[in-house]
Every structure is written in C-alpha cells, then in structure tokens.
C-alpha cells in the first residue's frame, strides 16, 4: 500500500526532554492510525513536527514522496496536509461557514492583486468555496448552524467544525488531535462516521486520542508511544492486551 506520509529518523529534544526519539512512521492511503500513549509521550509533538510548528533536530518527513521538512507551515498545507488542534484554534470572530471558507488549499483572496483587479475571478472562487463548504457542512451535520458564531455553538459542534475546516483542504493526509475528547452522544457518532468516510475516500489519517474505545472503534492500527519513542505498532487489541504497555500507560 502507498505511503502518503513517511517519517524517518525524526529527532527533537527541548533541553533534557526528548519529544521525538528516532521516530520512523508511515501513514498509508485510506488507513486510520491511532497514536496511543500517556501524557508527555510526544504524540502532539509528533503532529507539530510533521506540520512544521516545531522544527526537528534531524530526520526526514516526506508527503507523497516529497520532502517537506524545512518548508513553512503554509506550504505543507498547500501540498495536502491538514490537521485539527487539541485546543481547537477556531476563528472565534468568524461564523462556522467563514471558518470553513478559509480552508481550501487555494483561497479566493490569497492574491491581493486579484481582489483589486480581478473581482469577478475572486467572486467565482468565493462561490465555489461556499458550495464546497456547504457540502462539508452537510456531511458533518453542521449545515443548520452555518451562520452561527463559534462561541454560540456547543463544544461537540466546535470539535466538528475543527474537523470540517480541515476537510476543506481536500488533504491527502489528515492529522486529528484528540477529536473525541469531551464529546459525547450524537457528535461522537458523527465524528466517528465522518473519519471512517474520509479514510474510505483514500485519505491517510492519524489520530491522537485518549479514549481507548474510540481508538478501537476507529483505527485500523495503533502505535504506542512513550518518551518520544515508538515502542510498538499493531492492532489496537494487541496493544491494549500487552501488559507492559498498559503498565507504561497507567504508570506504576
């Protein structure tokens, strides 16, 4: 199976704290990989390294065969890498729809000269994005609150908006940082279904999640991380069943 994202020999330390210790990891097309591990294992740091939020000390990161290590965050996004954030990072002064409208790899107004000299072109592009945004909102069950400000919607809906905004990228690789934390009921089932659907459409997905049930329901495979190291990779059942890993997870 084709590897969409391939990380090799990735290292990063902050002073004495090692957040990535020679990580080798590949994400395959259409598969959902779960990152499991206790707090401080380096799961979110792994996302930050892949996205360019944090620069690695050494190592290589390739997206569909192209080296992206060293590129600015925005370039990686424009090559088809999208993510959500543990603390959401939604645009609080925008509506749900406007949050999504900023998400396509090419934005209507990226070029200010177009805004001033080719207003027709910009208007067409805006219309296209709006249609796509509504399609994504339908898919994520958010169409009814498209015009609501972020602060007026529930936490579960905010989580979904985070995922929906990342979907606007039409990404080849999607990183989801704790998509289920604090979510219950309808939104839970919906996020689960959406993530499965996206994977089925051929996107490589990586999920950081503390909810073991969710990881088991959702992921094709799991990776156990501890102290910046990948300790084991396998089906979620085998990882959970491993007494050594369980001990590391819950501490002694």
């Amino acid at each position: 199976m084709a590897d969409v994202l391939k990380v090799s020999g990735l290292n990063k330390r902050f002073g004495g704290i090692v957040v990535a210790d020679n990580i080798d990891l590949a994400l395959a097309k259409g598969r959902v990989l779960g990152l499991i591990g206790p707090n401080g294992a380096g799961k979110t740091s792994f996302f930050n390294l892949v996205c360019g939020v944090v620069k690695p000390d050494s190592g290589s990161i390739t997206l569909v065969g192209q080296e992206i290590n060293g590129l600015p965050i925005r370039e990686r996004a424009r090559m088809g890498l999208a993510r959500t954030w543990q603390n959401l990072r939604l645009f609080s002064s925008l509506s749900v729809l406007d949050n999504l409208m900023l998400g396509p790899r090419a934005y209507s107004a990226d070029n200010l000269l177009d805004v001033v000299f080719r207003p027709g072109h910009v208007a067409d592009s805006e219309r296209e994005s709006r249609e796509r945004a509504f399609a994504v909102l339908e898919r994520t069950g958010l169409a009814g609150i498209a015009h609501q400000p972020i602060r007026d919607i529930t936490f579960g809906q905010q989580k979904l908006v985070g995922v929906a905004r990342a979907l606007m990228n039409d990404a080849q690789c999607l990183l989801l940082d704790e998509p289920m934390a604090g979510v219950e009921g309808q939104a839970y089932a919906l996020i689960q279904k959406v993530v499965r659907d996206i994977a089925a459409s051929g996107v490589a997905i990586c999920v950081v999640e503390h909810n073991v049930a969710f990881i088991r329901d959702l992921c094709d495979e799991g990776v156990f991380m501890f102290a910046g190291k990948v300790l084991a990779r396998g089906t979620v059942e085998t990882l959970i069943a491993d007494p050594q890993l369980t001990e590391l997870y819950f501490g002694t």
Binding site: R74, L90, F91, M168
Partner: peptide, 12 residues
C-alpha cells in the same frame, strides 16, 4: 484570532 491555525490552512 489565531495566526497559527491560519497558517495551517495554507494562508500566508
């Protein structure tokens, strides 16, 4: 609102 999230969408 959030420059990091803004960059992560591909915006400059």
């Amino acid at each position: 609102d959030d420059e990091l999230a803004f960059s992560m969408l591909g915006r400059n």
